[in-house]
């Protein structure tokens, strides 16, 4: 009886705190060390930038005319050019043409 009462009055139960994300809870066993996440993120950002450089250039081109648009286009242009040169931009183009996405 005493155990039951103690169980009922625990803060977690009274605040009705919902359980943590199941996925987040269980994958931790095999997680990555924090020091290695930064390089992984940098690789991700670099690769994502090159793979989507043409898309970024298109987005920059759609910004309202002004200095912000000019700066964004100026930054995206060389990356898009480099991405085209090495042929890495073909992947996104192929996907877009697969779904008939208008540019």
């Amino acid at each position: 009886m005493a155990t039951k009462r103690a169980k009922r009055s625990t803060p977690a139960r009274r605040t009705g705190s919902t359980k943590p994300a199941d996925l987040a809870d269980q994958a931790v066993i095999t997680g990555t060390r924090p020091g290695r996440v930064c390089p992984a993120l940098l690789v991700f950002y670099g690769a994502a930038l090159l793979l989507n450089a043409e898309g970024l250039l298109r987005t920059a081109g759609r910004l309202p005319y002004g200095p912000m648009r000019d700066r964004c286009v100026a930054m995206a242009m060389p990356v898009a050019h480099f991405s085209q040169q090495i042929g890495i931009s073909r992947l996104r183009s192929a996907i877009e043409s697969l779904v008939n996405k208008s540019k």
Binding site: L23, A27, V28, T30, G31, T32, R33, P34, V37
Partner: peptide, 8 residues
Amino acid sequence: MGRVDTGA
């Protein structure tokens, strides 16, 4: 500090 759940 042991792990970050990058997978999750």
